[in-house]
Design a protein around this nucleic acid. Structure first.
Lengths: 183, 183
DNA sequence: ATCCGCATGTAACCCGTTACATGATTCT
DNA sequence: AGAATCATGTAACGGGTTACATGCGGAT
């Protein structure tokens, strides 16, 4: 895991809790009902992750034995949790991230504007754009020079990956324009 | 892992070894030097995975103490290994796969033509196309109906995901055409 | 003589998966 | 009364990450 000792799921939880306090069950519902469902909704993942964050004092849970329903434990971010989230969001965009952790980059972006602001989000997009502008051509060149010796389905699979990165690059530019137009 | 007890890395190894026998070190080089590098090249992942496959009699390793270099252990597929690979490649494409395991689908496709043939590859692409034709509109609708209550960067992140699936759908059609044109 | 690349491995740790367990509340 | 939903957990297991260890052969 990262030096911070927080897993990707951990950061996803920090991000969600930064938007609004929630219980483990609330989180599970988000993961089952929304496009955040790329994360697992299994209690065996979520509850231990929440406990780890709480043990690290990044979040704090309060039992709500309010009207009617069963006791819920609602978690909210602590100051340390907010710092950890900001640190993660502010990390530079590396080429390695683009290749091996594109999901994580997008997760970071999805929380970015609200937590560290629009300007930081734009800088992030520009950094990502730059990395992609470097990476896509190297993939294209690899495909061109190796296509001959590859099985057809192999080169098609690579083509798919390249198109994915090209689409991401196009999205980057679109997103930057969206912000620039607005201001 | 899967009922078969073979991890995604395990199938990647089976697929690579189906193309040509190789040592652990060869595999590592493939993962460091080619776009298959989405897999980790760490020996702590690869060597244990090879041993598991060998323990399951899916691959077999022979020590090559040929001229000059240090002993290499070269692995090749057994008949059982080929069967396991075919079984994996022949699995139906589920919606769940599209949402949670798109990488795995593409890995499968990249080996498909050579192992189970062009006709099967085309059927696979058509099944994937159908799943995507169902899935993309539901994502678009979700975005339309929830965009108002989402932070801007959140809806942009979702837009990125949707574009990725749209690109995959376009690639599917392109790949199908490639095969049809050729025959 | 030394250092780098080849080549294979091991061990501790972390965390996600799977499956199971439990109890309260509301619906029918 | 019984079923479904709300809500929270635990335990075993598997496998990937990280870091370390080893030892040979060719290059400088």
């Amino acid at each position: 895991m990262k030096p911070s000792g927080i897993s990707l799921l951990g950061y996803a939880l920090l991000g969600l809790l930064s938007q609004q306090p929630a219980s483990g069950y609330d989180i599970r519902k988000i993961f089952t009902d929304t496009p955040m469902g790329t994360f697992s909704n299994s209690p065996g993942a979520i509850y231990p992750a929440l406990r780890r964050l709480e043990a690290g004092k990044l979040i704090h849970g309060q039992v709500e034995n309010a009207s009617g329903l069963r006791r819920r434990k609602v978690f909210h971010l602590t100051a340390a949790g907010t710092s950890a989230l900001k640190e993660w969001l502010n990390r530079p965009v590396s080429c390695e991230d683009v290749v091996h952790a594109a999901d994580e980059l997008m997760l970071r972006f999805s929380f970015m504007e609200q937590i560290i602001g629009e300007a930081a989000a734009i800088r992030f997009l520009q950094a990502l754009e730059k990395e992609l502008e470097g990476y896509v051509p190297t993939l294209r060149k690899y495909l061109e020079s190796h296509q001959a010796g590859m099985p057809r389905s192999g080169s098609l699979a690579l083509e798919s990956g390249i198109r994915g990165y090209e689409t991401l690059l196009g999205w980057c530019r679109h997103a930057i324009k969206t912000y620039e137009k607005k201001s």
